[in-house]
Design a protein around this nucleic acid. Structure first.
Lengths: 187, 187
DNA sequence: ATTAGCCTTTGACAAAAATCAAAAAAATCA
DNA sequence: TGATTTTTTTGATTTTTGTCAAAGGCTAAT
C-alpha cells in the first residue's frame, strides 16, 4: 500500500510505520477540468501529489497570467512558497483534465513532523524534488530558444500539448500566441 | 554566539545544544575576488553562508555563461541541486569581492541529521529559503521588462552594479551587453 | 608616461518577435 | 444542424533586441 512510489524509491530506508502514518493522512480528491486547486489570495494549505491527470500552475500580476509549470502523474504540485511561509499566494493552479490527487494539509504535516522524526525525511524529499524541478525550469528558460523550448515540451510532456490551450503554452514559453502558432506551422 | 542570525529569527525554538552542534561544524573561509566556490563538473560538497561579500552564480552550457544569481551578506549560496543529489554540477560560483563565508559539508550535515532530530529544522529552513529565493528569481524574470529588471536590481542590490561586470549583469537580465549599455545611458 | 589589452559604449544594420487586424477553424449551444 | 462565440492562424507592420564593427576609455605593466 504505497500510494506515492517515489518516496520508496528515494528513501527505501524509511520504516513502514512512518510511511503508514504519512499515507494515512492523505486525502483523495478528484478535480474536474477547470477546477482550481488553489487560487490567488489564498494561503496554500496542502501539498498535492498527482496520481493521474494534468494541472497548470500560473502566476497572476498586473493582469498578466503567466504559466509557470505544467505537472502530471507522479509529480507534486503546490503553491510552495505560500505553503512554506503560510502567506497569500499569487498562484492559480487548475486542472486541465480530470485529475486524481492525494493531499496532505499543512497542519497535519506539521503535527506529523513533531510526532515522528522520519517524517522530516519525507518532507525533505518533497522539498528537494520541488526545488530541483524549479531549477530545471529556470535553466530551461534561460538557455533554450523559443523553438527549442517548444520542441522539448513536445517530446518531454506531449500530453500537455493536447490538454493546454495555446495561450497557456505560449506564456509558459515566454512568447506571444502568434509566435507559437507560427512555430507550430513551420514544422 | 549565533553565527547565522536568520536561523534564530525563523526557528527561535531550536534548543541551544542543537544550535551549538551545528555551528561547531561550520568552517570559516575567506575568498579573494575571482576565487571559485565551486565549478562545473564538481559535486557540490558544501552549503555556504555569506557573512560578507558578493558572489555570482552562473550556469555554463554550449559555451554560453549565464548568470543565475548574485548573492550577498546573510544569504546561503550553493550549487543546490548538485548538493541535494550529489551529482556533478554545471554551476560556477565565484567571489566578486573579498568574501567571508561559513561552510558545512555534506557528510557532516548528513551525520548531524542522523544524530540530532532538531537538525532537520535547520536544514529545512535552508532548503525553504533557498526555494523561495529561486521562485522569486523565476517570477522576476517572467514578469518584468528589461528596463524594469535593471531598475529593480539597481534599487534592491546596488552593490552588485558596483562589483559585477556588465557582461554578468546582462546575462542575468537576459539581454546582450549592448542592450544593457543602452538602457544605462538612457537614464 | 606610454603602450597594450580589455571592457564598455555607440552606430548601423539585420533578425526576431510583438502588435494589430482580419480570416479561418474549432468548439459550444440552442 | 446551424448559429454564435471562442480560439487559432495568417498577414502586414512596427518595435525591440541582437549582431557586427569601430571607437572610446580604463587599467596595468613595462
Amino acid at each position: 500500500m504505497n500510494k506515492i512510489p517515489v518516496i520508496h524509491e528515494l528513501y527505501p530506508d524509511i520504516p513502514e510505520t512512518s510511511l503508514h502514518l504519512f499515507f494515512d493522512k492523505l486525502q483523495e480528491k478528484t478535480l474536474q477540468k477547470g477546477d482550481l486547486l488553489i487560487s490567488e489570495g489564498q494561503i496554500c494549505q496542502h501539498i498535492t501529489y498527482i496520481q493521474s491527470g494534468i494541472v497548470r500552475s500560473a502566476y497572476k500580476r498586473d493582469d498578466k497570467d503567466i504559466t509557470i509549470s505544467f505537472s502530471g502523474e507522479g509529480e507534486f504540485i503546490t503553491a510552495m512558497s505560500s505553503f512554506i511561509s503560510q502567506t497569500p499566494t499569487y498562484e492559480n493552479i487548475e486542472a486541465l483534465s480530470e485529475t486524481h490527487v492525494l493531499q496532505i494539509s499543512y497542519s497535519e504535516l506539521m503535527a506529523l513532523l513533531d510526532q515522528d522524526k522520519n517524517m522530516e525525511h519525507i518532507y525533505r524529499l518533497i522539498l528537494e524534488r520541488y526545488y530541483i524541478s524549479l531549477e530545471e525550469l529556470l535553466i530551461f528558460s534561460k538557455f533554450k530558444s523559443a523553438k527549442e523550448r517548444y520542441l522539448e515540451l513536445l517530446t518531454k510532456k506531449p500530453l500537455i500539448i493536447q490538454y493546454a490551450a495555446v495561450g497557456h503554452i505560449a506564456s509558459y514559453l515566454d512568447m506571444s500566441i502568434e509566435t507559437l502558432s507560427r512555430i507550430r506551422s513551420s514544422m
